[in-house]
Structures are given as C-alpha cells and as structure tokens.
Design a protein around this nucleic acid. Structure first.
Lengths: 170, 170
DNA sequence: CGGATAGATGATATAAGGTAACATGACAAG
DNA sequence: CTTGTCATGTTACCTTATATCATCTATCCG
C-alpha cells in the first residue's frame, strides 16, 4: 500500500536535507544503548537490530518491511516478531509510528521529550520529523475544559517535500 | 481490531457531553445537501447514506462497519463501495479519518475551515473533535524553513475521556 | 438527437497491516 | 533449584485497504 504510493522512495528521505548518514546510525545506536543501560531497559538483539534497520533505511518503513530485514538477519519471520520489537522502540521513544502511513521511523531526536510532529510528502512518502515540540496549546485547553486527559499527541502534516516540489516545477 | 480494544463503545461518544442528537443528524444532512448543490458536488445515494450512518452512529467507525450498514440499506457489499463513499466525504470535509483508529467520523463542524483535531480515549475509543483550529504554528514555521508545503494537518491526542476517568477513580 | 466524455458504481481478487493465543527459552530473585 | 517474569518463536486468523476491469449514467456539445 505504502509501496504502491511510493514505488521509488527517496532513500535520503528524512529531513529533506543532506546529512552525514553513516555517522548518525552509530551515534544513535550508542545513545540507545546508553539510555537502556541507564534505565534498565533491555535492548535485546531483535530490538537492537530493528532499530539499526530503521536508522539505516532512514525513512518510514512498514512493519513487514522491517520484519523481512529482521528475518534476513536470522530472526523470526512472523509478524509478532517485528511488531513487538517496534512496540518496544516506540514505547521508549527510540522510534515513532507514522499513523498516516502505517509505518515506523527511527526518532531523530533521541532523548528529547516527545510530542513528535511529522511532515509527510504525499508524492514520495518522505518523512521529516519536525524540530522542537510543536503540540498545539489550543488543544490542551480544549482538553482541560472537557475533562479529557491527554497522554500523547500526534501531529502529522501531509504535503509536498522540497524535492517533489522542484520536480513539479520542471 | 478496533472492536477488540473497544468491546462496548460508548454510543454517545462524541464531544464527551450530552447533546440533542436526533436533531443534529437532520441538520447536518441538510447542510451537506446545500453545500453539494452550491459546489456542484454529487451527493449520490451511497454517499448520502454513508454520511447518515456516520452521523447516526456518532462515533468513529471502521470502513467495514460502515460497509455493513450500507449493505443493509441495499448497496453493494464490497469494500470499495464503502471506501469510495468515505473518500468522498473526507475529501470534501463532511467526515474525517481518525488515523489512530483507522476509522471515520462525521465532521462536527461542517463548513468551517478544516484542520481537525481529535481527542481519542484509549480505553473506550470515544472520539471528540476539538473546537476551532488548533494547528500548531511551530510546525508551519518548520515547514516553511525546510521548503515543505503543508496541505493538510492531522492532530490526534490520545488519553482518557471524562467518563473513563471517573470509572477509574471509583 | 446521438455520440463522446467524465464520473460513479459493481464485482472480483488480492495485498497489506495487525493480533490472539499458546509454547518455549533465558535469566534473576528468593 | 524453583518460581516468576519477560522475551522470543510459531500458528492461525482477522481487519483494513487497493488495484483492476466492466458497466452504467449523466452531461456536454455538435
């Protein structure tokens, strides 16, 4: 489904800007290890590999795509394997789920407090995580007024990324 | 899936507050008809019925639940029937998709400009559409800075609704 | 009127996403 | 060493979503 909309996803799809990619994978893994050690979380082989996969691909991936890669690395090939690993990563802020795409991305700001906001290209499915917290105050007020307790907020903007925008002009 | 999480959804689930429901269905349908006439949109029987269904149920419904109801009304029973009708409603702002639940709700503010924001109860799956526009400025700025063109923004807050909150206290 | 075109519907088939439930294995605490 | 907890693996299955092709209907235009 995602892949149908996105036959040739831009492999450098995150952030809409060039960056030193090789480096960021290692850094992120190291950071994750440190944090898991500190918080007594268990970054098991499957989970670690799942995070590596998301970091390496560096774009939104469906659970089944992750599963396939996990399987290539010698882990189980059944859906729950991937979903459990991804659930762990999401639960602890190492990754996010992009609801709009039913897909997952590695978090680009490990450690920071989390109300992730995404910009999703409708054409190439590239995903960028926006900077600092972006959650709307107005929503908090509305929630308070009605007695609703917010635990998590998801913000996803759909539109056109710079690259596809240029192509359209041409 | 939704129904597994939500075996007994609160039937008066929208807005977290009592309201005159019988009335609002008719009003909304009439408004939709008027707008379709004005904008030369075709509110065909299937589409109209789909909107009625969403309005009557007055909560987030999966496409297949809508399909079932459509079928009871004498329309086709295959998925595309429901998805097409729902796509039309969403495209023109008569309904919204709640990404988090893979479900659809009738819009509670027909006519107003749309950057819908939802509050979703993690326990009973009730959904409330927040009032006025709630889209975060910070995101707009981030987008502009990176050259991303926003076309639509989705805001979904997960948490606990007043009713479930009370139950938890007891 | 009559044909062309565009949009809507119907039906078939299949892809993709997601979970429940149960069995096994690793490991630390008592 | 055994009990409890958490992670993994596997089976089976359910839900959500789309592609595709055929048909129908309305509208526009000559």
């Amino acid at each position: 489904m995602t892949s149908a909309r996105n036959p040739v996803p831009d492999p450098s799809a995150i952030g809409f800007a060039a960056h030193d990619h090789a480096d960021c994978v290692e850094t992120a893994i190291a950071a994750a290890e440190a944090r898991c050690a500190a918080e007594k979380l268990r970054l098991t082989p499957v989970r670690r590999r799942a995070l590596e996969i998301l970091l390496q691909e560096h774009r939104a991936m469906g659970a089944y795509a992750v599963l396939e890669k996990l399987n290539e690395s010698g882990f189980g090939s059944q859906p729950p394997v991937a979903y459990r690993a991804l659930d762990f990563l999401v639960a602890h802020g190492f990754a996010h789920k992009v609801e709009r795409l039913n897909a997952f991305v590695a978090c680009t700001r490990p450690g920071e407090s989390h109300a992730p906001a995404f910009m999703i290209c409708r054409i190439c499915a590239a995903v960028a995580e926006a900077g600092a917290t972006v959650a709307p105050d107005a929503l908090g007020e509305a929630a308070e007024a009605s007695g609703f307790t917010i635990e998590r907020t998801v913000v996803e903007a759909e539109g056109i990324c710079p690259a596809c925008s240029e192509k359209a002009d041409a």
